[in-house]
Design a protein around this nucleic acid. Sequence first.
DNA 1: CGGCCGGTTGAGTGCTATCAAGCTGCGTGG
DNA 2: CCACGCAGCTTGATAGCACTCAACCGGCCG
Lengths: 239, 239
Amino acid sequence: MIESHLLKLRARFPISEEEEAAIRAVVTEERHYRADKTIVRAGEVLGYSTLLLDGLLSRYKDLRDGGRQITELHVAGDFADMHAYTLRHLDHAVMTLSPCRIGIARHEDLRALFAAHPRLHDIYWFFTNVDASIDREWTLSLGRRDARGRVAHLFCELGVRLGLVGMSDETGYDLALTQIDIAECLGLTSVHVNRVLKELRESGIVEFRGGRVEILDRRALEAAAEFDPAYLYLTGPKG
Amino acid sequence: MIESHLLKLRARFPISEEEEAAIRAVVTEERHYRADKTIVRAGEVLGYSTLLLDGLLSRYKDLRDGGRQITELHVAGDFADMHAYTLRHLDHAVMTLSPCRIGIARHEDLRALFAAHPRLHDIYWFFTNVDASIDREWTLSLGRRDARGRVAHLFCELGVRLGLVGMSDETGYDLALTQIDIAECLGLTSVHVNRVLKELRESGIVEFRGGRVEILDRRALEAAAEFDPAYLYLTGPKG
DNA sequence: CGGCCGGTTGAGTGCTATCAAGCTGCGTGG
DNA sequence: CCACGCAGCTTGATAGCACTCAACCGGCCG
């Protein structure tokens, strides 16, 4: 059930069988949600964190005029809101973008886990710091990359992150996003996203259609994005 | 020496005298830097984290074309890179924007601190999560606020954060930023920042001149920013 | 006194938004 | 089985916010 999560952990840290068992024991419940459902509201006091087992989740914030910004996407294996363990309530909401399977880890159980396994305490801290790093990279995109670079960068990032859990390969990956979702990630309008996708497709760089990203020219894609995966900390703190 | 930091901690959590002593013992060295000096380079392996005692620090990332994005500002009392404790090296650089006094906390000493005081382990995790929350709010600004809203929001945020350590009041605060720095925070050019500052000044909302922010009409400023300080988690996890 | 950094202002450009219309695919209900 | 409705995609025309280029100013420092 939490295989993706273990893949993600082990991409950076060795995890012993005992630790694995302890982690498995913390995820006590599985829930299923349909697409486009807000599963955590901003400000709501939380007694648990949610581990995404399958599907696509977003963190988002709204402005009064209806503007919405997605601040991070989560793929299978990610804790969407481990930071709620220390923050208690969130400054953002969490919603499904596709049908999702979600595991629940109660904070009291996490507390016991960290007390028994101090190393896991630092490891989960590490992963919230990687989330923050991803956020910084998005800040860079929104502040300094043009629309083409932002789209290209998003496709690069998701390719790597999905690859960690075995859900992408050299040719591409499935991605259950609408053009509207992409616009909300990148601080653009869906109309403009549409035009950029068209241009990337016609340039033979990348094609996004029918919920699938086909990478036609990886080198050109990464160049357009100025992509450097260092910010994903793929090698763990020792690398 | 770390009074600002203790103010910041105690704004959210009660800290016992014993904990305070343990924290003081971890900050083993004080360094002084002039303005505009990069004190941590991206990718450099770090054995310590830096506590800003006085001055203004920025985290920033560069693109090849010379574009620079500041992803967060740090004021007195902030750990600028506590996340290096788990990440070991950073995806961004850290530079001074004004002359700075900095305290050094070695990671081995932090490790011992957290082992002896598990509560502080979670508290420092909490603060890296607040940093991430600030980053999300910046992402929202860059993605969905116009230039006027971004400038107004930055001034609101810094007013609150400096207020926590006694460095701002109702009328305003000192802020050693250039218009270029502000532009690098907000994903704008300095020319456009200049025009927006002029407009805010002439509207009687806020005046930024000579390294000082004078808040002329707080209500209008917060309205322009659509500012809600909830994302700063001022009340701690219990509030 | 000269150089330089930061700030200011003007003119013109361009990237992205806005507004609008039509298309496509799919689920639903008659 | 087909009509309908709706969400998402596509494309065109127009508008505007912020950028670029450029010139000049003022203060500070060597």
